[in-house]
């Protein structure tokens, strides 16, 4: 589904990713772990298309399409969706507007008709219930005045409504208490499906107790230095990143 090959990325002239290679297949849940500054967030930002990242070498393909040549919205319409570590507050834009325009943009891009309002409402209400969110939330502005936990739930709600092919979740666990994390993890787990892949970017192993990954990659200094299964995450929790860095060196 997603192929990242020998990706080199610089930000303000400084090289952050130094030859990252990663393949994610449909049905898989991958976790990328690593110390601060290793380039974890850079990877997802580049795939989503954020400004300020210069790809100097390598490629990113998604279902055979060259992601780096696509507009930001085209990537999302194709099914590549990023959940932000720090969701942006958008004063005045109601959640309902965002959800509806995003869903319909995706459908129109796929050549489908817009979803009729009653069907849309039913879908949103069901997903809201799943995320234990109140309906009044739909009339609130996107992330404005939300607590950290509400912002993260909102990111997952968007995923549940938009049903991406590849969901990339950047530090979705940061700032969550245990109850909020369970709700978020339930949301993510509900996305697991044969035809879908999930990429979790996280600093802590704790999240992976609730969302058990198929593959774990350790990112150090712009490269994946070790890959394994869920056990690797536990190992990291016990021994930290230092041992990995040494063995990689």
């Amino acid at each position: 589904m997603l192929q990242v090959k020998d990706l080199h990325v610089t930000v303000d002239g400084k090289e952050i990713l130094k030859g990252l290679t990663l393949t994610i297949n449909a049905g898989e849940v991958h976790a990328i772990m690593g110390p601060n500054g290793a380039g974890k967030s850079t990877l997802s930002a580049v795939i989503a298309g954020k400004d300020g990242y210069e790809v100097t070498h390598g490629s990113v393909t998604f279902e055979g399409q060259d992601v780096l040549e696509m507009e930001i919205e085209e990537r999302a319409q194709a099914g590549l969706l990023l959940g932000f570590q720090y969701p942006v507050e958008i004063p005045g834009v109601k959640n309902i507007y965002l959800l509806k325009s995003a869903l319909n943009a995706q459908r129109v891009a796929r050549g489908e008709a817009e979803m009729p309002a009653p069907e849309f409402m039913k879908l949103v209400k069901e997903k809201l219930g799943f995320m234990k969110m109140d309906a009044s939330f739909l009339q609130r502005a996107v992330n404005e005045g939300f607590s950290g936990g509400e912002k993260k739930r909102n990111e997952i709600l968007q995923m549940l409504v938009l049903q991406p092919k590849l969901a990339m979740l950047d530090e979705i666990d940061s700032g969550l208490d245990i109850d909020a994390m369970k709700v978020v993890a339930d949301g993510v787990n509900s996305l697991r499906a044969e035809e879908r892949a999930i990429l979790l970017v996280t600093h802590y192993q704790r999240l992976l107790d609730y969302i058990v990954p198929d593959k774990v990659h350790v990112l150090v200094d712009g490269r994946i230095v070790k890959s394994g299964d869920a056990e690797l995450a536990k190992e990291l929790e016990a021994n930290g990143y230092e041992g990995i860095e040494e063995s990689a060196a």
């Binding site: 930001i72 919205e73 999302a76 969701p87 996107v142 968007q158």
Partner: peptide
Amino acid sequence: DAIYALRTRGIDKAT
């Protein structure tokens, strides 16, 4: 930043 955030949800720039 807000325009970017909306675009990452598949909403075109003009919308």
